[in-house]
Structure formats: C-alpha cells, structure tokens
C-alpha cells in the first residue's frame, strides 16, 4: 500500500477522541446557570412526586375537619383546605398526576408526531402536502381548546386527559421532525444508503432518526411545560382527573372559593405550577441553545 493518509491521523490517535455532539451539548448546557437552576427545580419536583408516598406528612385524602382551613405553619406546614386535608401532602401527590400525565402525553406525541413528520418529509410530494395541511389544521386550535373538545367528548379521566394533551402536541412534533428530514434526505449519505440497497424504513429509522433526535428532544422539554399548563387548566375547569384525587389545577380551583379568608389554598398549587413550568422552560431553552448549530462553534 503506497498511499499515505493525507493528514496526521496519528496525532488524532494520541489525543482523546472529541466528544460526541450530545456530550458537547450537555457540557455546554451544564455550564449555563439558568439551565442548571431549571434542572434543579425539575429534579426536586420529580423527587417529590416519586417519593410522595414516603415523604408526605399526611394521607392526601385524610380529612381533619376540626383543623380545616388552617393557615401555613404549625402542624400542617402549608396549612389545610376546607375539608382539613394537608396542602403539602396534596401538592406532593398532585405532582404525580401533573408529571405522569404530561410525560406520557408528550412521549406519545413525540413518537407519533415524530414518525408522522419524518415519514411525511421523507416521502414528500402530494402526500407530504396533505399530511402537513392536516397538521396545520390541528395546529390552528389552541391547545387548551383542543384538549377541552377531546375531554368533553370522551369524558374526563386519566387516559382521556393524556390522549387530549398528546393530540394537541402531535402537530408541532410532526413539524419539528419534518424540517430536518427534508434537509437530511438531500444529503449524499441517504443516496448512498439507497445505492447500497437499504430499505426506506432502514434509512428513516437508522440514518435520519439519530440525526433529528436532539431537535425533537429540545422540543419535548419545551412542550412538557405546555402540557403541564394544559393539564392544570383542564383540571382547573373541572375536566381533569376527578376529585378526590389531588391535582394542582383542581386544588387551585377549590382554593378560589376561600380566596379571601384562606388565600394559601390557591397560592401554593399556583406556585407549584409556576415553578414546574418555569423549570421546564429553563431547561428547554438551555438545551435549545446548546444544540443550536448557529451558536455551536464547530
């Protein structure tokens, strides 16, 4: 073999391999304080939700009628509601509903919407046009209205709530998956795959999918915040998970009846929603900046 490599790969062999794009993005996100604060908030709420059965001081459904409408402090750290139920315990249990509904809805929307977007963009032509118009129709409904329609039609329960929220998020995921697919399918490696006899399924899932995951994941974090908000709003207007299951939206609504003499009833769940949405947005923004090719110095 007379051919020599054209530049010093030997040097590259001594140096540690450069980190993968994912690692680089994570490293960048880690150096951003806002992202880290957001991540901390999210992790705390997640820990609270997961550990709720062990760390909540009272059973969230236990009624201590004698101590109803207790102000924060004392035996009940965040006070009690009109039935004498412990607010802190209900908040912790409510986080489970909030997180599980939003997470499963966004996961479903990500898988379905992402697949629709990739396949539609890859196939292109009239099919793509048709699919994207359907998505535009979906997109033209505000998420709350669409969620409202679905829950009102199917009836309020946990699964329907997830379906409703997932439905509102499919269209944005389809769009976010389609745009990079359109660019990627023009790249020579997709043609090379076809010349090598790869099936379209293989090209889409083995070669296009790994190249769009970062965009989709960033989108997922941001839409998780929206999902939390929609879930809270639906619970607030009574279309969420039915009482007595504690939900943040439901607690806020219940608190409104006593807003003048016991404002903490509405304030604490409100703060919980605010913190979670804020935390998720901070993480999402940080991840978006970290994976943005325009800001990434390559």
């Amino acid at each position: 073999m007379s051919a020599v490599s054209d530049d010093p790969l030997v040097a590259a062999e001594v140096a540690p391999p450069p980190p993968s794009p994912w690692k680089r993005a994570l490293g960048k996100a880690r150096s951003n304080p806002t992202t880290m604060i957001g991540a901390l908030i999210c992790l705390l709420i997640l820990a609270g939700a997961v550990l709720a059965p062990w760390i909540s001081p009272y059973d969230p459904a236990d009624q201590d009628i004698i101590n109803r409408l207790q102000p924060p402090g004392g035996d009940y750290l965040l006070g009690t509601d009109q039935f004498g139920r412990d607010i802190l315990s209900r908040l912790l249990w409510g986080a489970r509903i909030s997180l599980s509904v939003s997470l499963s809805a966004i996961l479903a929307a990500m898988v379905i919407g992402g697949a629709i977007g990739m396949v539609s963009g890859y196939i292109g032509g009239r099919f793509d046009l048709f699919v994207m118009q359907v998505m535009d129709v979906l997109l033209s409904f505000p998420s709350l209205i669409l969620g409202l329609i679905v829950v009102a039609l199917l009836g309020p329960d946990l699964v329907n709530l997830i379906v409703a929220i997932a439905l509102t998020a499919i269209a944005p995921f389809a769009r976010i998956a389609r745009a990079p697919t359109l660019a990627l399918k023009e790249r020579a490696f997709v043609e090379a795959g076809r010349a090598l006899g790869y099936s379209h399924t293989r090209i889409i899932f083995r070669h296009i999918l790994p190249n769009i995951t970062s965009e989709v994941m960033v989108m997922a974090t941001l839409w998780l915040a929206t999902a939390v908000r929609v879930e809270a709003s639906l619970s607030f207007i009574g279309l969420g998970v039915k009482p007595p299951t504690p939900t943040w939206g439901g607690m806020t609504r219940d608190g409104f009846e006593n807003i003048l003499d016991a404002p903490w009833l509405a304030v604490f769940p409100g703060i919980a929603i605010l913190l979670l949405v804020l935390g998720l947005n901070m993480v999402g923004d940080g991840l978006r900046d970290a994976t943005d090719p325009k800001l990434r110095n390559e």
């Binding site: 020579a188 043609e191 090379a192 010349a195 006899g197 790869y198 083995r206 790994p210 190249n211």
Partner: peptide, 30 residues
C-alpha cells in the same frame, strides 16, 4: 451489490451520527 457510487461531497456522504465501523458493517449485514 454490483454497482456502487462514490460521491462528490465527502462532507455529506457519511452519516454524521454513525461510526465508521458501523457504516462499513451495515452494508455487509444488509
């Protein structure tokens, strides 16, 4: 299998998220 192509642009002809080994072994497996 009988006819293959080498492309003009070496920067777009390889999948950026696939290791070289995987890129070379995938056609053999297929």
């Amino acid at each position: 299998r009988r006819m293959q192509i080498v492309f003009q642009d070496p920067y777009s002809s390889l999948d950026p998220r696939q290791s070289i080994g995987s890129a070379l072994m995938e056609p053999m497996r297929v």
